[in-house]
Amino acid sequence: MDTAAARSRLEAMLDDLDRSIAILRGEHPGRDSSAADAGSGLSDSDRVEAALESLERHRNAVGAALDRIAGGTYGLCIGCGAPVPEGRLEARPDAARCVACQAKHDRAMR
């Protein structure tokens, strides 16, 4: 994948993620301390917190991909150093690992 095209896609992803994070934070700035809604509020807050954590992890991955572009290592697996397949980068421009290394990483994270 052309790094200029990758950078453009990643920057657009970063903008979208920032907007989504800001919306979630704006709608749910903190946990509801109301006793009447304690059960449902906690559940909603937990879902919002989980969504924010997921968005922030994705944002970090996109930022790391932009750093790899700047450092000249974009498209190289951070696990083994082999090129990440073009199709994988097309589908996931923030992909940091080849499929084999990603599978190993995922197993290790369980």
Rank of each mutant, 00 (worst) to 15 (best):
M1G: 09
D2A: 02
D2M: 03
T3L: 00
T3P: 07
A5H: 00
A5Q: 02
R7Q: 15
R7A: 15
R7E: 14
S8C: 05
L10T: 01
A12H: 08
A12S: 15
M13H: 12
D15S: 13
D15Q: 15
L17Y: 14
L17M: 11
D18W: 07
D18S: 15
I21M: 10
A22M: 12
I23H: 11
I23S: 10
L24M: 14
L24W: 11
E27W: 05
E27C: 06
E27G: 15
H28S: 13
H28R: 12
P29W: 08
G30C: 03
G30I: 00
R31H: 04
D32T: 09
S33D: 10
S33W: 06
S34N: 12
A35P: 03
A35S: 10
A36L: 05
S40F: 04
G41R: 05
G41F: 06
L42D: 03
S43I: 06
S43R: 10
S43M: 08
S43P: 00
S45R: 04
S45G: 11
D46P: 01
D46S: 11
R47H: 08
E49V: 02
A50K: 11
A50E: 08
A51N: 12
A51Y: 02
L52S: 08
E53T: 10
R57A: 11
H58D: 12
H58L: 15
H58G: 06
A61I: 01
G63D: 09
G63Q: 10
A65G: 01
L66F: 08
D67I: 01
D67S: 07
D67E: 15
A70C: 02
A70W: 02
G71S: 10
G71T: 03
G72H: 05
T73S: 13
G75Q: 05
L76G: 02
C77W: 12
C80E: 08
G81P: 06
G81I: 09
A82F: 06
P83Q: 13
V84M: 01
V84H: 00
P85Q: 14
P85K: 12
P85R: 15
E86F: 07
R88G: 02
L89Y: 01
L89H: 02
E90F: 00
E90I: 05
R92N: 03
P93W: 03
C98M: 11
C98D: 12
A100D: 10
C101W: 06
Q102A: 13
H105P: 00
D106P: 03
D106G: 04
D106F: 04
D106Y: 04
R107I: 01
R107D: 02
A108G: 04
R110T: 06
